[in-house]
Design a protein around this nucleic acid. Structure first.
Lengths: 261, 261
DNA sequence: AAGTTTTTTTGATGCAAATCAGGTTTAACG
DNA sequence: CGTTAAACCTGATTTGCATCAAAAAAACTT
């Protein structure tokens, strides 16, 4: 399923890769940097030992010092709520940045945990800010990434406040599909890195509901599921259920009212 | 109820104020800038004519060019969903920045509408980026503000996926109270700038439910409501219902597991 | 490979909140 | 100022999903 070496096993990550040769650079921080600038960025980045499934990148409350780019595998962000429950706030796939919501904090506001064997690039934030002084492109790239995350969060808020169980799961699957596609994987066939429980937690649904919706989707030939393996059989049907993407909704505008400026 | 001139009526905003003399500067962009730097920031900011209730600051789909700081009044952000429904994504009070989620977009991804007579400072984003080149403090302030919004969004996601109707409304009221307090208003007595409908929309509840919860809170002497006027009678009770703030939750940590790094 | 734990699935039941319906109050406006 | 529309409240009913319970499947252990 993986194309190229996206998911290549790298036990010596330090010597293995540089941003310049990284297949993810077109989706990650280096976007829109020239070769020289990428090289400068590269110098401040540390490649860490791969995390095993269940290991933490950082804990809620740890001193904030770095942001991380996922190289392979996947990460979940979660917080512990007042009543001691886990609440998942995000899943991160390769090329995505983890830890941005801690920038103005002493400590990370959430924990980050590997869902599978995962490699990351560690970016000391202080040095990133230093470097950003000289590289306007890098600066605006950080802003763009954060702005995108803001928009994704608003989308998530809409999902949680307006969509029913089927729409939520359909949105989740099409969203994952899109992200896999951009990373060079098949948009139709992929392996879910997270459990049903985690999907439910993230989507504001009970595990049982997630399971039931999966079964229903299978019965109506939208998808075929085998454990964590998912095949999307009817992408259009799934997309319609999910609620069409943003382009469409932009056409629909609120009718202008009399007292309008 | 307002203290000082926070909510002062200003029909000639252009000559009226500069960041240096603005009572909100300690909450807004100029934070941590010295006098000279504030002056530079001031030069790129335009004070617009006040918006009347219901007027738009911008529409979803308008070309993105400026972010705005609310000076007085309040703004709601909303998007139109695929099925033509309005979905409110945020309310903005004085000193808060509007439009940050459009930074990496051609166009604003949401609309912004005045909930009452509202004055804003208009900040052309291109010029802000220019200025940020020379002012590292300004740069990190923008990052901090965005990072904070990210965290607020995660909080909102938790509210929407885990909290029941009473907890949502309690959270909403205590949150507003805190924000009013920081801005120099009473945390116990304030006027809701938005309708029950808008509260429900934002909190993922039906209008009727919001209304019922208000009544229940009133019956249990947590608050006294008269239309849009709210008095908080038992702040502690309300806070407990809302789920205690972040400090508490940081103490509770997930028990470390065997396979931990 | 047998045993143990965890995850997933399926069914039955209960409940919180949505929806529906009606009445009341408040705001808007000619 | 009176008329109309919008916002708000309250009760009755419905319903989607959570919860409870328990079996089946998968994933670790030894």
């Amino acid at each position: 399923m993986p194309k190229g070496q996206l998911k290549g096993i790298c036990f010596h990550p330090s010597k293995e890769t540089k941003c310049v040769t990284c297949s993810l650079s077109s989706l990650c921080l280096p976007i829109s940097l020239n070769f020289e600038d990428i090289d400068q960025l590269d110098k401040i980045i540390k490649r860490r030992q791969p995390l095993k499934k269940g290991e933490h990148l950082f804990h809620q409350g740890d001193r904030f010092d770095c942001v991380y780019a996922v190289r392979s595998g996947s990460i979940k962000n979660y917080a512990i709520t007042n009543d001691g429950e886990e609440q998942i706030t995000n899943f991160h796939l390769p090329s995505e940045l983890v830890g941005l919501d801690g920038i103005d904090c002493e400590t990370y506001p959430v924990s980050a945990k590997a869902l599978e064997t995962t490699t990351v690039c560690e970016i000391p934030f202080a040095r990133l800010e230093e470097l950003a002084k000289e590289l306007p492109e890098l600066r605006s790239q950080v802003l763009r990434i954060m702005s995108r995350e803001l928009r994704d969060d608003k989308q998530m808020m809409m999902l949680l406040s307006k969509k029913n169980a089927e729409q939520r799961v359909a949105t989740f699957l099409t969203n994952l599909s899109t992200r896999f596609k951009r990373r060079g994987y098949s948009p139709f066939t992929f392996r879910l890195p997270m459990s049903r429980n985690e999907i439910g937690n993230y989507l504001g649904l009970a595990v049982e509901t997630v399971s039931r919706v999966f079964t229903r989707f299978q019965n109506s030939n939208l998808i075929a599921v085998n454990g964590k393996e998912v095949h999307i059989l009817n992408m259009e049907g799934l997309s319609i259920l999910a609620g069409l993407p943003d382009q469409e909704s932009k056409i629909i505008q609120e009718p202008k009212i009399a007292n309008e400026g």
